[in-house]
Each structure stands twice: as structure tokens, then as C-alpha cells.
Design a protein around this nucleic acid. Structure first.
Length: 800
DNA sequence: AGCACGCCGACT
DNA sequence: GTCGGCGTGCTC
């Protein structure tokens, strides 16, 4: 009998998406356990793998042994292993991909391949290796040496080594330790030559503070010296310099003022009590917390988490990436201090790893993070909160294409704990489930400050045009901005960029500059003064003449934030403007700095894209303007009305959150559209009813489930043939109530020279669908190796 | 995925 | 007769 580990190898391919057995070598017998990463030989290669199980079996002498363990403690708990299995099945992706998705990027293996010289005598070989013992494969390949080296491999004068590398780098800090007691120190100071002023400073620092250990950096700053005197003192044995591991702390040096629970309104209290009851009774209940902006949802999160912590359990709080602002983090940090770990994409991969480790080591009991934080390695979870549950960012757009909400509900069901979905504008799906009592609805109709919701004016921009107003600003908006300027109050302007990139078009013939590889128009970039493709990165110069008709009337269309800023400066020269978009927030911390400046009243107007729609909470914002409310209304996506309503509601909530009442101006070319009208009235329920009718009529979620199948290849005929075969196959297999739409070219019909076609399945109950889809993937496996890509998105969120 | 093996055409 | 193209199949 031998000890055997079942291992999922790090090779994302269908044929090897199953466990492989490996012998556990004797010295690792009690070390290897499920959830650890190991290094194993796999064919001629060496790869990383995840142990999913260990077992004892009869010795069949055919198993290769595990080469090395990468962890001493499992990185995946049994819960997360099971979750990965489920995820892979649900999203039709590979198990390894699911496991990788649950871990910080630093735990993903890096592979290296290089040659080792075995024959020391051969002169030519030595020359090839430039005298070194090893030669990097990539380097050899780049220099065209592979063929020559092959000979040496064959006759055993060299060999190929496959190596798995850990990416983890521990952050080190240089510490200075004091090796002498105060008396000795005094003597040492007297012994120092008079000229050694800097060394004296260092010793006096230690004598005055009584410290015995300090980072070198801090010592240099505080004692006002450079590295040299410290080195000297270390040489004579008075000090010792030690490199020590430290955890990166992205919030280092910040002081969080401790806050305590705020008093709750009746509605908040009731909601809190119900959630706490579910926590107490270990009930896997899903709550939909529907609260208007400013109704105090966050305070409910904080107080229920407090309860979870008191019970000795842990909590996960998911927040959309863009609202993971310092303001948001601060609220959690100041209530729970060091118990909070933050996981978000602006952190470096090292920082993310360290935060993840704090969770794993049970130093943190609350995690606040974006989508992937739903996989936080807690083992005694007490509650999961998803704020702004309607946000599309919770759906991962590449494999594994999971939705964080589904993962949360899975974990909650297993752990018998509640999930809280919070939103001012719940998704149709969630609200429908709440109405059917699948979720428990908790409503917060009132704002905490008892303020009325801001008044929303809708301006018909077609009228403005008729009145010869060609600027981006309606007369009323301009009027109100001037008024705020005079009163010293602040304005937020939202430019809805989605579906509205700036492109170059010929005014004479209508020619639009397009990407030669992708079926999409090129975007104009002012910074580089070039045309760039969003999808493949293709770049070209801005044309002077129309390539089609030679006309010189070729110009930019679309409205960028820069352009708006320019015209705003002309109209309101005295206004101080802060512009926030991808360009001005690219560098780390820029986002925060700009907001801070706005908070400090260093500007009157904040102009930005979607990223300013959330989380801004400044007392002096009394006017919000939406420059173009409807640009995304006509995107080919059934959720476009819902998204428009959500965005408008969201930004409206930025105004008048404190004492001053707010006003909102919404500019639109289609002011009569229901999503705008209901947003104007702050009428979520009205919008919900209307939108549900549309969804019913056009057979969309939540009445039908969707699955999107996409095929792409360089040869258009191959794509059409394949997608047709798939559609026909599904038609023959699925229930007759299921609708199969298409195949049709995708919205962007070509990316990177690959043609893209898709078909959509709409269905109600289809228990066999998953199996059928899997068999389709298997069937086209060989073609997938020849450049054909089949992507399956179960319950897609974005249809483009 | 990646790599070896193996079977055919185009050359020294 | 050999080099190298790519199709096929396997990886504990």
C-alpha cells in the first residue's frame, strides 16, 4: 500500500481537466494534504498542481512521485476546493482555472525552461552557453540556436530543465538593532573621534529614545544622517543591520479615527434586526436590502458585521471596484480597525497577497473587496454582503465566467449564513426574486437626514438645438452652475461615456476611420494625437484628408471630457474645474487626490465619467448635471434601459446628501423614454413594473435564462459553418420552448482579424443544457487547437 | 497546453 | 537517403 495524492495539474486543456494520481514520497507523507500546491512531473514537463485529495492505494509501481510541495499549509480549504469544482461545472471552465481564480495572482506558478550544459570539455558547447552552465530557452530560441543544441541533447552533453517558480517575494525592510546597553553606549560615544559627528548623532538618538530596534530608513530620517555612519557603527559591533520580512500595509501611516455605531432609524433598525436574527439562527437566507441613496445601508452593514464578529465569525463585503474609494474603506477601517483586510485592483500584487495572507492567518476577520474577494479564505464565515448588487462588475467577463452573487449564495448555503444584497436600484432578477419570496425584501424608503430626494429636471436637448444652442450645456444647466458658483456651492457633471467614444468622420461622405483588424471605429486620443483601436491596440496617425473622398472636412465626433472641459472654461471662465477620467486618474492614488482636492473646495466643478457616479459624499454638492443621459440607451443590449435608470438614480443621489437641498439636471435627446422619466420621479417600483413588462414581452431575464455561445476564427466561412452546426445541434436537443436566436455576427464582428459570430439560447428549464454544451466543447476540441475559439457564457451580463 | 512520435514531400 | 512539415495522441 502506498500514499497517493490526486492532483489537478496546471494545464488548462479539456483532455487533462481531471485528477492525476501521484505517489507521495515517504518524507512528505504527513506533509501533503488536500488544498496544497505541489510541483509534479507531467509528461516531459514539470508543472504546478493542486492536491484535491489524498488516499492509500495498492502499489502499482506506475505512479510518478510528487517532486516538491509549494505550501506547508493548504492554500485552498475543502470548502474552496468544492466551490472550485462547482464553479468549473457551472461556468464550463477548467478546474485549474477555477482554483486559480480563487487565489491571489502571486500564487500562480511561473514556468521556466532552460538548458544545462553537462559536458564541460566541449569548446563549441561552451561557446554556445557563453561560458555559463545554463542557457535560457527563450534566449537560445531568439538567437536561433535550438537546432544546434538539439544535437547535444541527443548525445547527452546537455539537458532541458523545466522549472516551476514561485512568484512570491517577501517585502524586506532593513532594520538596525542596538547591540550595546546604555552604559556601553556612553563609553562608545566618548571613544568616537570628535570629527565623527554623524556617528555621534546616531548614538545620541538611541540614548535619547531608549529604542533598541528601528528601521534604517526611520533612523536616517530622525537622526538626520546618511547610510555611512550606520554602516561604520555596525562594523565596530555597536549596531547590527538585519534584513527582516515585513507585511506590506497599503494603509500604513494612516490614522483611522475610531467610530462607534450610529443611532438607527426605524427602518434601518428593523432591517438590522432581521439580518442579525438570521446570523444568530445560522440561517442561509438571502436578503435584498432596497434603500434609496442616502438611506444608510452602510451603517446597517457595519452594525450587522459587528454582530458577526462578536459571534466569533467572519464577514465578506463586496463592493464594486469603482466605489472602493478611500472614503468607503475608511468607514470600515475606522469601525473595525486592523480587523479589516482590503482587496482591490489598485493594490500591487504583493500588497494583495499580503492582505490575503492576513485573512488566511486569521489576523483579519472582515474583508472589503471587489468581485474576487468573495473567495476570501475564511473558515468560519458569518455573513456575506454585496453592496450595489446590480453592478455588472460582479460578473467576471473571462473564464471562469462566474457571478459573485451566485458564489456568495453557494458559500452561504453551505455555511448556513445570510447573504445581504444591497442596492438603491436592484437588478430586475433580484427584485423579482424578492417579490417571489425567494429573497427577503428589506426596504429603506427614507434618507437618514430626512432630506427629500433632489428634484430632477429633464432638459430636451433637441429644443436647445432649435434655439441655436450648440454647446454641450443647456441654458438652464448653465444658469444653475452660475448660481452655485455665486453661492460657493459645488457642482458635479457626469459625462456618460459608454457607447460614445470619440471617432473621426468625414463630414462630406460620412467615412469613418476604422481598424484594419477589427470591425470597430478607431478612437481619437488627444494625448498622443493618434487614432487607436480599443481592442487590438492598432495605432495610426489622424488623417488630414478623407481617405475615401479626399475632402478636408474630416473631424472628430463624440464628446470627450477634455472637450467638455474646454468649452466649460469658455462659458464659465471663473470656475475652477477638476476633470476625472481614465487619463487623469491613471497613476496610483490620483483618484483619491482629485477627490480630496474637491472635498477641500479647491474646485467648483467636478467633471467626470461613470467613476464619479458612486460614493461621492460631500456636503456642498447641490447640483448634479448629466450631460448626455441617453447615449447608452440604444446599445444593443436588453439591459440598457435598466443601466440608464440605475446610472441616473445613482448620480442624482450625489446631490444634497447633507443640509443643503440638491438639484439634478438631466440632459437628453429622448427625454420621454421611460427610464429617464422614472428616474426623474425617483420611482424604482414604477420602473420595475414597466421594465418587467418589456422583459416579458421580449422574453428576456428574469423570465428566461440566457446563454450566449460565440465562435471565432480567422476564416469567416469556418465560423459560420461551425456556429450553424452548433445551433442546429442545440435545436435538435433542447426543449421546444427553448429559443435559439441566430447565428448572427457579434456586435463587433471582427477582433484581431478573427471573425466573430454568436447565437443566444433563451430557455426556462433545460436540465440537459450543461451536458450538451460540454459535449459541444468536446466535439470541437481538435478544431480549437487550430485557431477556432468557442466561448460559452452562461447568463451573460453584457451582450456585446 | 506542449511535447514526442510518426508519416509524407523536398532537398543535400 | 535525410530534414522538416504538420497531423495524432498522451500526459499519473
Amino acid at each position: 500500500m502506498v500514499n497517493v495524492a490526486e492532483v489537478i495539474v496546471d494545464v488548462p486543456a479539456m483532455q487533462v481537466d481531471r485528477p492525476f494520481d501521484y505517489l507521495i514520497p515517504e518524507e512528505l507523507t504527513d506533509v501533503v494534504t488536500a488544498g496544497m500546491r505541489v510541483i509534479v512531473p507531467f509528461g516531459p514537463r514539470t508543472v504546478q498542481g493542486f492536491v484535491i485529495q489524498t488516499k492509500v492505494t495498492p502499489d502499482n509501481h506506475k505512479l510518478k512521485p510528487i517532486r516538491e510541495v509549494m505550501d506547508l499549509l493548504p492554500v485552498l480549504s475543502t470548502e474552496l476546493l468544492a466551490l472550485g469544482d462547482w464553479l468549473a461545472k457551472e461556468t464550463l471552465s477548467f478546474k485549474v482555472s477555477a482554483y486559480q481564480a480563487m487565489l491571489p495572482a502571486l500564487l500562480r506558478a511561473k514556468y521556466e525552461k532552460y538548458f544545462v550544459r553537462l559536458d564541460e570539455e566541449d569548446a563549441e558547447l561552451e561557446a554556445l552557453f557563453e561560458g555559463y552552465e545554463t542557457l535560457d530557452w527563450k534566449k537560445a530560441e531568439a538567437n536561433g540556436l535550438l537546432k544546434v543544441i538539439q544535437k547535444y541533447l541527443k548525445n547527452g552533453q546537455a539537458e532541458v530543465i523545466y522549472q516551476v517558480k514561485n512568484k512570491i517575494t517577501k517585502k524586506k525592510a532593513r532594520y538596525v538593532h542596538l547591540k550595546k546597553d546604555p552604559v556601553q553606549l556612553e563609553e562608545a560615544l566618548l571613544d568616537l573621534p570628535k570629527s565623527a559627528k554623524a556617528q555621534q548623532k546616531v548614538l545620541r538618538y538611541f540614548m535619547q529614545t531608549g529604542e533598541t530596534k528601528i528601521t534604517q530608513k526611520a533612523l536616517q530620517e530622525r537622526a538626520g544622517v546618511t547610510t555611512e555612519p550606520i554602516k561604520k557603527l555596525a562594523q565596530v559591533g555597536i549596531l547590527k543591520i538585519v534584513d527582516q520580512e515585513v507585511a506590506r500595509d497599503p494603509y500604513q501611516g494612516r490614522v483611522f479615527e475610531k467610530t462607534t455605531a450610529l443611532p438607527l432609524l426605524d427602518g434601518q433598525k428593523q432591517a438590522c434586526d432581521q439580518i442579525i436574527e438570521a446570523v444568530e439562527q445560522n440561517r442561509a437566507e438571502t436578503f435584498l436590502l432596497h434603500g434609496v441613496t442616502g438611506s444608510g445601508k452602510t451603517e446597517i452593514y457595519l452594525q450587522t458585521i459587528e454582530h458577526v464578529l462578536k459571534k466569533g465569525q467572519e464577514a465578506i463585503v463586496l463592493v464594486p471596484e469603482i466605489s472602493l474609494t478611500p472614503q468607503m474603506v475608511n468607514r470600515f477601517k475606522s469601525r473595525f480597525g486592523d480587523e479589516v483586510a482590503v482587496l482591490h485592483s489598485a493594490l500591487s500584487s504583493g500588497e494583495k497577497y499580503d492582505e490575503w495572507r492576513r485573512i488566511e492567518k486569521k489576523e483579519a476577520h472582515v474583508v472589503v473587496g471587489a468581485r474576487s474577494a468573495v473567495f476570501a479564505p475564511f473558515e468560519n464565515l458569518g455573513m456575506i454582503i454585496i453592496d450595489e448588487e446590480h453592478e455588472a462588475t460582479y460578473k467576471q467577463e473571462d473564464n471562469p465566467r462566474y457571478h459573485a452573487r451566485d458564489v456568495a449564495i453557494w458559500r452561504a448555503a453551505r455555511a448556513n449564513i445570510p447573504v445581504v444584497l444591497g442596492s438603491a436600484t436592484p437588478s430586475m432578477e433580484s427584485f423579482a426574486r424578492a417579490k417571489k419570496n425567494v429573497y427577503t425584501l428589506l426596504s429603506l424608503p427614507d434618507r437618514v437626514n430626512q432630506q427629500d430626494l433632489p428634484e430632477v429636471h429633464v432638459v430636451d436637448m433637441r429644443d436647445e438645438l432649435r434655439q441655436q444652442n450648440r454647446t454641450e450645456f443647456s441654458r438652464i444647466l448653465l444658469e444653475k452652475m452660475k448660481d452655485r458658483l455665486a453661492k460657493g456651492e459645488q457642482t458635479v457633471l457626469l459625462l456618460n461615456k459608454r457607447g460614445y467614444a470619440s471617432f473621426v468622420m468625414c463630414r462630406d461622405c460620412g467615412y469613418v476611420v476604422e481598424c484594419p483588424n477589427c470591425d470597430i471605429s478607431l478612437t481619437y486620443h488627444q494625448a498622443t494625437h493618434k487614432m487607436k483601436c480599443h481592442y487590438c491596440g492598432h495605432e495610426e496617425a489622424v488623417p488630414n484628408h478623407c481617405p475615401s473622398c479626399e475632402s478636408e472636412h474630416i473631424r472628430y465626433f463624440g464628446t470627450g471630457t477634455q472637450k467638455v472641459e474646454e468649452s466649460l472654461t469658455k462659458l464659465l471662465p471663473e470656475a475652477r474645474i477638476i476633470r476625472m477620467d481614465v487619463d487623469t486618474t491613471r497613476t496610483k492614488g490620483a483618484h483619491e487626490k482629485l477627490l480630496q482636492r474637491f472635498a477641500n473646495h479647491e474646485a467648483d466643478i467636478l467633471l467626470g465619467t461613470q467613476m464619479i457616479a458612486k460614493g461621492l459624499d460631500f456636503p456642498d454638492i447641490t447640483l448634479v448635471g448629466v450631460l448626455n443621459a441617453d447615449t447608452m440607451l440604444f446599445l444593443p443590449d436588453f439591459r440598457s434601459a435598466e443601466r440608464t435608470f440605475q446610472l441616473l438614480t445613482q448620480v442624482s443621489g450625489r446631490a444634497g446628501r447633507h443640509e443643503l437641498t440638491g438639484e439634478v439636471i438631466v440632459q437628453s435627446y429622448t427625454p420621454e423614454h421611460y427610464s429617464i422619466q422614472y428616474a426623474k420621479k425617483h420611482d424604482y417600483l414604477g420602473f420595475y413594473e414597466h421594465e418587467m413588462q418589456m422583459r416579458y414581452r421580449y422574453q428576456y431575464p428574469p423570465f428566461y435564462y440566457l446563454t450566449l455561445i460565440g465562435v471565432s476564427h480567422e476564416d469567416e466561412m469556418t465560423v459560420i459553418r461551425t456556429i450553424r452546426q452548433i445551433a442546429d445541434y442545440l435545436r435538435s436537443k433542447l426543449h421546444q420552448n427553448a429559443l435559439i436566436l441566430g447565428p448572427v455576427p457579434s456586435t463587433i464582428s471582427r477582433i484581431k482579424n478573427k471573425y466573430r459570430y454568436q447565437c443566444m439560447i433563451k430557455y426556462k428549464v433545460e436540465p440537459e443544457l450543461q451536458a450538451e454544451l460540454k459535449s459541444i466543447l468536446e466535439h470541437y476540441q481538435k478544431d480549437q487547437q487550430k485557431g477556432l475559439t468557442i466561448s460559452i457564457d452562461v447568463q451573460p451580463y453584457v451582450l456585446m
